[in-house]
């Protein structure tokens, strides 16, 4: 893969679009789960609020400041998890994590089908310094859903 193609893959249209105009920003009200994400290395911050009805994530919103990758990741994550059962969402969390931390030599992203639009983040695996940007929202979500209740997660 050429250098410029790597960069184009990372900053593809879908990611640029969600980076510029993130969806589901704000605070979910009422909300049953919340967590703060923080990357002390770069200063990215994320406040995630959720409403879980029974077993399903009925609503999810975020507020934060970060780079295009972390903003787009939070935005696309909210779209991907809204309306889905928590167990499925946690499965998606693991799949996303595997996607962005996969060996850069792998040609096709694993689980492209299960990941849907999230497969757009496959390019992140070629940029080890940017993995934390893409995964901050997901780590925050996982923390919010922990049974002991949430807190602040940090990635660095």
């Amino acid at each position: 893969m050429s250098d410029d193609a790597e960069l184009d893959e990372l900053y593809q249209e879908l990611i640029m679009d969600h980076g510029r105009r993130p969806r589901n920003t704000g605070v979910a009200e009422p909300c049953s789960h919340r967590a703060h994400g923080h990357n002390p290395l770069c200063g990215d911050k994320l406040a995630l609020t959720l409403r879980v009805d029974g077993d399903v994530i009925a609503d999810v919103k975020f507020l934060g400041e970060g780079c295009a990758i972390s903003t787009a990741s939070a935005s696309l994550m909210t779209q991907a998890v809204k309306g889905r059962p928590v167990t499925e969402v946690l499965d998606l969390y693991h799949r996303f994590h595997a996607l962005v931390t996969a060996d850069a030599g792998e040609t096709a992203p694993p689980d492209a089908e299960a990941l849907g639009k999230l497969a757009a983040f496959a390019g992140v695996r070629r940029f080890p310094t940017r993995v934390k940007c893409a995964s901050l929202a997901w780590h925050t979500l996982e923390a919010a859903l922990r049974p002991e209740g949430a807190s602040t997660v940090t990635t660095e």
């Binding site: 960069l7 990372l10 780079c67 295009a68 940017r130 940007c133």
Partner: peptide
């Protein structure tokens, strides 16, 4: 128009 981390990735290229 761009966050420092996005810019720095392009700078590296």
């Amino acid at each position: 128009f761009a966050h420092p981390h996005d810019a720095a990735t392009f700078f590296d290229f």
